[in-house]
Amino acid sequence: MASKPRVRVPKKAKAGDIITIKSLISHKMETGQRKDKKTGEKIPRLIINKFVCKFNGNVVFSSDWHPAVSANPYMAFSYKVVESGEFEFTWTDDAGETVSKKAKLTVS
């Protein structure tokens, strides 16, 4: 279900800088409240319920999502730069499907 993970991270930063990271992923985020117009049956819930951002293997930010998070969820947050390394972003949905995306950061 989840596709096209996108993240915006500066490629270079100075130690001590606070950078803003923006993320976006395509997902319907089916709430479980909607009904199928033809059959009248409820469409089962299928949302991304967990978003995690790691830097060099350590969790630096995470979020639990409920059905009230919009379709194609967007998340922006901050990170204080210490050293060069790699971010790894992971989205997990109700079906257990995970999508990951990596981004490198160089400290100049």
């Binding site: 606070i18 830097f55 350590n58 630096v60 930010f61 979020s63 967007y74 998340m75 922006a76 947050f77 901050s78 990170y79 204080k80 210490v82």
Partner: peptide, 8 residues
């Protein structure tokens, strides 16, 4: 490590 507690 967040630096500031800010999210959107």
């Amino acid at each position: 490590a967040s630096g500031v507690a800010k999210a959107a």
